[in-house]
Nucleic acid binder design. Structure first.
Length: 565
RNA sequence: GCGCUUGUGGCUCAAUUGGAUAGAGCAUCAGACUUCGGAUCUGAGGGUUAGAGGUUCGAGUCCUCUCAGGCGUACCA
C-alpha cells in the first residue's frame, strides 16, 4: 500500500481541475493528530510563483478535491497548510486486505533492479572484532530490505585474503600445526605468535617473505597452505554470521584475491584512457579538485586496494550487471570511496547510470565516548561480545521456571542477539554510537525487547481467544484510526528506508507502532467482558496485523520473535 | 595546514530531507490495578537546537564566520 502516493494522486487531480501547473509535490504525514492524517504544504511554495497568497491557493485546491474516495475532509490552517483526513471506511478496507495478504499489502517493485550490497568484509588474517559488527548487520538489513521490496540483491563479502601478512602466517602454520586443527582456534593469538616469531628469528622472516612471493607466483605448496588458512579463518566468520542470524554464505564471498587476474587489465585500461600519471615511481590518477592522487600501482609494481576496488566495481557493473552498488563501510573511508567512485565513472569501468553509494557508518564507542576496547586495551572479539549478550539475556528472562533449560538457551540467544542488533540499527548510522548493555537489554524504550514483548503480548491474546476471526474491521475511535493509518504506512516507510539505507527508520516506525498499539490496547479492551462481538472481531484483526507487521519488520532487521517470553 | 564530519533537555537518541508549539526513552516527580501479560498506561517539570550573522512566507535542517570534539590527509586495507 503506497499510501502517500495515493493521496498525492488526489492532490494532483485537484491541481489539474483547478488548472494549476506545477512540478510534483508530495504530501507529508501530519505532525499532530489535530492536523489530520496527512498535510500538503505545496501552497506556500507555489505562492510566489503564482503571485497569489498561499491560503488562496490552498482554497483553490480544496475546492477541487475529490472527497468521495480516500480523503473525506480537508482544512486550511496557518499560512496555507492543507490538512487532510482519510476516510475511515477506506482505511478499514485497506487494513483488512493487508491482513489477508502474505506481504501485508506491500507491493513488489514494478521495475526491480540488480543491487550489489558489499558488506562485512572481514580480514582473514584476524578474528572478527566489534568493528565488523556494524557493517555486517547494516548491510544484511539493507540486503533483506531490498530483497523484500523485490530488487534482485547480490550480497558480496569482499574478504581480505591477500597481502604480505599471509606469507608470515602460512610459514608459521606450516611450522606449528599444518592441519590447522589446534593453533588456529584463536586467530588473534596465532597472529601474535607468528609476529613474535617473525621479529625474533631472521631465518623465519626470510622464509615468510619468500612465501609471499611464492603465493603470488602460484607455488602449489604455498597456495595449498594459504587455502587451508583461509578456509579455517572463514569458518570462524561463519560461526559469527550464524550467531548473528546474518544471511551471508560462502557463495557470497568474492575475496580480494578473486580480482588479482584483473589488476593488470585495470592498469592497462587506465593507461589507454590517459588517466595515469607517474609520480615518484607510482602510477597515480590526479583528480580535479583533489589534492591527493589515487595510487593504483606502487613504485615496486605492486597493486593497492584502490586497484582492487576498481576491479571489483568493474566486475560488479559489467559482469554482475548491477545498477546500484552499495558499500557498507566505515565512514572513515569516505575519502577513498569518493575518489574511487569518481575514477570508476570517468574511466568508464562503471556506466553513468549505475548508482554508486558509500553507506557510511560511525564508530562504536564505550560509555565514556572512547573507541570500544577490552579492559586491557585490545580489540573486542565479536564472538565474545555475542556470547556475552546471550549470557546477559539469560539474566533478563524473568520466569525461568516456565521453561526447560534448552528453551531458556534458545530464548536467551534470540533476545541477546536481537538486543545487540537492534541497538545498533536503531540509531542514525552515520553518527558514532555508544554501546551500553543495560540500555539495549531494557524492556523500556526503543529496544528489541520492547518489540518482542509487544509481539508476545499480542500472541497471548490469540492464545486466550482461541477461536475463528470473522467479520469486518470497523474504525471505532481516534486510536484505532491512528493505529490503522500507521499500519498502512508500512510500505512508504520501507521504501524510504531502502532509498536512504537507514535502518533506524524501520526501528523508529516499529517503536511508534508498538507504542500506539499499547495505548490502543489499554483503552480499547478486546477480550474483556462487555465488548460486543463485532467490536471484538474488529480489534482482534487490528491486533493481528500489528503483530504481523512487527514480525515482518523485525525479520527485515534479522531479528526473531517468540510467542512467549 | 588542508579536507570531511559532528555539536539538539542531566544522559541516550528522533525530527518525514525547508513546514505549524523541536519529539521519544532513561533519570526525577505525580497518578491509574481484584493485570484481556503492570515487562503496561496517564500526566508534570526539564530546550535561546554550541555561538554570531545571513538567505525567505517559514531554518535544528541551507550559506558565511567563530568555538569545541572526531576522523582523514599519496605508495596499509
Amino acid at each position: 500500500m503506497k499510501l502517500k502516493s495515493q493521496i498525492n494522486d488526489v492532490i494532483k487531480n485537484a491541481f489539474v481541475k483547478a488548472g494549476i501547473e506545477h512540478e510534483p509535490m508530495s504530501v507529508t504525514e501530519a505532525t499532530k493528530p489535530e492536523f489530520g492524517d496527512y498535510q500538503f504544504n505545496g501552497a506556500m511554495a507555489l505562492a510566489k510563483r503564482l503571485g497569489k497568497n498561499p491560503r488562496q491557493i490552498a482554497e483553490m485546491i480544496m475546492e477541487n478535491l475529490d472527497f468521495s474516495g480516500i480523503v473525506v475532509k480537508a482544512q486550511i490552517a496557518g499560512p496555507g497548510f492543507l490538512n487532510l483526513w482519510i476516510n475511515p471506511l477506506w482505511i478499514a478496507q485497506q487494513v483488512q486486505s493487508a491482513l489477508h495478504d502474505e506481504r501485508l499489502g506491500v507491493s513488489k517493485r514494478e521495475n526491480p533492479i540488480k543491487v550489489v550490497v558489499d558488506y562485512s568484509g572481514p580480514n582473514m588474517a584476524k578474528q572478527m572484532h566489534v568493528g565488523h559488527l556494524r557493517s555486517t548487520i547494516i548491510g544484511d538489513t539493507l540486503a533483506n530490505l531490498l530483497t523484500f521490496l523485490g530488487d534482485e540483491v547480490i550480497r558480496q563479502n569482499h574478504i581480505g585474503d591477500w597481502g604480505t601478512q599471509f606469507g608470515m602466517l602460512i610459514a608459521y602454520l606450516e611450522e606449528t600445526d599444518e592441519d590447522g586443527s589446534g593453533s588456529l582456534k584463536d586467530l588473534e593469538q596465532f597472529y601474535k605468535d607468528a609476529k613474535e616469531r617473525f621479529d625474533a628469528d631472521e631465518a623465519f622472516a626470510d622464509k615468510a617473505r619468500e612465501y609471499v612471493v611464492k603465493i603470488q607466483s602460484g607455488d602449489e605448496h604455498c597456495l595449498k597452505l594459504w587455502q587451508k588458512f583461509i578456509d579455517i579463518s572463514l569458518r570462524h566468520c561463519e560461526d559469527v554470521y550464524d550467531k548473528l542470524c546474518v544471511k551471508l554464505t560462502r557463495d557470497d564471498v568474492k575475496a580480494e584475491s578473486f580480482y588479482n587476474k584483473d589488476l593488470p587489465e585495470v592498469i592497462e585500461e587506465l593507461l589507454e584512457k590517459n588517466m595515469l600519471t607517474k609520480s615518484d615511481g607510482a602510477q597515480c590518477i590526479f583528480l580535479e579538485g583533489e589534492e591527493i592522487p589515487v595510487i593504483v600501482q606502487k613504485g615496486d609494481g605492486g597493486y593497492l586496494y584502490a586497484t582492487t576496488d576498481l576491479a571489483a566495481l568493474r566486475y560488479r557493473a559489467n559482469v554482475l550487471e548491477a545498477k546500484r552498488i552499495a558499500y557498507v563501510v566505515d565512514a572513515r573511508q569516505g575519502g577513498h570511496f569518493k575518489q574511487v567512485f569518481k575514477v570508476a565513472k570517468e574511466s568508464g569501468f562503471v556506466p553513468e547510470d549505475v548508482k554508486l553509494e558509500h553507506i557510511a557508518f560511525g564508530t562504536m564507542m564505550d560509555k565514556n565516548g572512547k573507541p570500544f576496547k577490552t579492559r586491557d586495551g585490545g580489540t573486542v572479539k565479536l564472538i565474545d561480545l555475542l556470547d556475552e549478550a546471550v549470557v546477559k539475556a539469560k539474566g533478563a528472562i524473568k520466569d525461568k521456571e516456565g521453561y526447560s533449560k534448552e528453551e531458556v538457551e534458545a530464548l536467551a540467544k534470540i533476545i541477546g542477539i536481537g538486543a545487540v542488533k537492534y541497538a545498533d540499527l536503531a540509531i542514525n548510522r552515520e553518527s558514532n554510537y555508544i554501546f551500553n548493555w543495560d540500555k539495549m537489554l531494557s524492556f523500556d524504550g526503543n529496544t528489541s525487547l520492547y518489540m518482542q514483548y509487544a509481539y508476545a503480548r499480542i500472541q497471548s491474546i490469540f492464545r486466550k481467544f482461541n477461536g475463528e476471526i470473522k467479520g469486518d474491521i470497523v474504525i471505532g475511535d481516534a486510536l484505532e484510526h491512528r493505529l490503522s493509518v500507521m499500519l498502512l504506512r508500512f510500505e512508504d516507510m520501507l521504501e524510504s528506508a531502502a532509498d536512504n539505507a537507514t535502518p533506524n527508520q524501520i526501528t523508529a516506525y516499529l517503536y511508534d507502532l508498538a507504542t500506539l498499539f499499547m495505548r490502543f490496547y489499554e483503552h480499547n479492551p478486546i477480550l474483556k467482558e462487555g465488548v460486543d462481538e463485532k467490536t471484538k472481531m474488529s480489534r482482534l484483526q487490528l491486533a493481528d496485523l500489528t503483530a504481523k507487521t512487527i514480525k515482518q519488520g523485525l525479520d527485515i532487521l534479522g531479528i526473531e520473535v517468540v510467542d512467549r517470553l
